[in-house]
Design a protein around this nucleic acid. Structure first.
Lengths: 333, 333
DNA sequence: CTGAAAGCGCTTACAG
DNA sequence: CTGAAAGCGCTTACAG
């Protein structure tokens, strides 16, 4: 494969002039530039990015580490992050962690090996105990809950307030026996703990007694988990007329599970989700949910990261919480 | 940041010995290895991958270029490809092309810039006219139709046969007025052309006359396109009792669109999709579809690519077509 | 506007 | 089992 030196020789200029043309530096005579471009074309030359990265000390690439690449929520968030980063001249490499602590740590290491100029890490497996490990000089933005107060910029969803609104909405629609389908991680700042707290507070505020028989925990929060949770609720025999779901994916599974048991939504049971994934608009019935403003998450994450990459003297880590809105659809009509 | 030389100095060995430890070469005395590992740990040393890539001439990374990162089909395929590649010691960088010809070509260029050791390209925007551009020395596997007979390994889905089976299934269920919702690209080897051909052939074989009023084209094949296509069908007034959808995503939109118009599935209309995305199992009603064996696509794509990367004297490009099976669910019950 | 020199941080033969 | 030397292909100051 042709190198920059080959191009220089063919064009009768120095390697540095070729480099200047490649990097669109202004001080190159038009005629020289033409000669160089012609040589590049004729030789089919492509810059070797490994060499460029080594010398330049940057890759113009940011990493985005997510639990799963096939989750609608993260796919749709990734799509927005890619768009924002692209506008700023960065490419995005998506990395799968499987929500595993070790993999999340190794995503951080990947950045430290200079693969990425910075990292957006969706932290699920990391716990509050891992905070100190984030004390690194790599530009990083963490999405998630457990990292509040860690020494990095952090963006949280409106977990407690959002689920409060979702639960209150069910009460306003007349529900009195409201179940919740959630995760199994009960640690202090887990998504499940925070969203459960919003659910409990809403019930308490409306004078409704909580019933542990209506709390269903699932490990992985897949669509299948949602379905089996619905089966468990129905088969368990405790009366219920509303279900708060910890994610839209779980909610879509719950809709399916209720249909399996011949219950109609919203006629027999009302259901509300969280995330406002695209699919929530198209399910039958369409799904009432909390829209946590993914556009804002993407914009904020990229802006914060690029600021850190650019270097920010006197920078202090900040915790951000995005806004939300309740989107009312057929499942609670 | 500490370099390999810093580690060497701290451990009192040569840089090359550190490199040998790093790369797990066998001929290092246990005691020396310990000293080096200790120094690595103390200095918090991480290898600089840009330097390693430059020197080694490889990145241990393969690219996977997809039209959209937030499509269930590609997300679920990517997940499988990541797993296969990981087993072989490769990481996967997912790149979005937006189904745009220019972006697909630039994904190829990315590989030629040595960012990736090889590329799996899901070609949608590239046409048959671009075949020659694929005549490159970069290891590459193309997924899609339009690249048949191009000078690269190529994996096609069972488009014609799969849609034939889907259409025949509707006929067997009693449908006689069968619509199709497809794309707008009528070029010879487009997905739409191939799947449409399967639809037509099945109708012909069963002695059913095709009706152009039942062919609905949509540009982007999003879930919203599926919904609006269903509206167009119903509002157009032509009778129909079955719908063949070019993808499951379109089919989920069609289910929603039919629900909007008060039609029941499968009571009034039967619907069949293509892809067997996970969501097809959970929609209400669940979706009958063609499972094109994504596991085989992923396995084959990675195997072929790694073979090309390893170097294969006398290699000749091959076209592969994966198998399929019809998955019967509620939408055609 | 253009160039000669140095060096980014590794790994690869080659020796011993 | 360990090391000295060369070099992967670029870009960055510095000169002129």
């Amino acid at each position: 494969m042709a190198t920059l030196h080959d191009v220089a020789r063919a064009a009768g200029v120095s390697p540095m002039t070729v480099s200047n043309v490649l990097n669109k530096h202004p001080h190159v005579r038009a005629e020289t530039r033409e000669r160089v471009l012609k040589a590049i074309d004729e030789l089919g030359y492509r810059v070797n990015v490994a060499a460029r990265n080594l010398r330049a000390g940057r890759t113009d690439t940011i990493g985005f580490a997510v639990p799963e690449v096939d989750s609608p929520y993260f796919g749709q968030l990734a799509s927005r992050i890619i768009a924002k980063a692209h506008d700023a001249g960065y490419r995005v490499a998506i990395e799968r962690t499987g929500a595993d602590r070790e993999n999340e740590l190794s995503a951080i290491t990947s950045s430290r090996t200079r693969m990425y100029d910075g990292l957006i890490l969706s932290a699920v497996g990391l716990g509050t105990a891992d905070r100190e490990l984030l004390n690194t000089d790599v530009p990083m933005v963490v999405l998630g809950e457990s990292m509040a107060d860690a020494p990095v910029d952090h963006i949280a969803l409106p977990n407690e307030a959002g689920t409060y609104a979702a639960t209150a909405h069910l009460v306003d629609r007349g529900c009195r026996r409201i179940a919740i389908v959630q995760g199994e991680d009960q640690s202090r700042l887990s998504v499940t703990s925070l969203r459960h707290a919003g659910y409990r507070r809403a019930l308490a505020d409306r004078g409704i007694e909580a019933d542990d028989a209506l709390v269903i925990g699932r490990r992985h929060l897949s669509i299948e988990d949602g379905r089996s949770a619905a089966h468990e609720l129905v088969d368990g025999g405790a009366a219920f007329d509303g279900v708060v779901c910890i994610t839209d994916t779980v909610a879509l599974g719950v809709l399916r599970g209720l249909a399996d048991r011949g219950l109609s939504v919203p006629g027999d049971v009302r259901v509300v989700g969280f995330d406002d994934i695209l699919e929530a608009r198209y399910s039958v019935p369409s799904l009432t949910t909390i829209d946590p403003d993914r556009d804002e998450v993407a914009r904020l994450a990229v802006d914060l990261l690029l600021t850190r990459i650019a270097g920010s003297p006197g920078w202090q880590p900040h915790d951000h919480v995005t806004g939300f809105r309740l989107v009312e659809r057929e499942s609670t009509a």
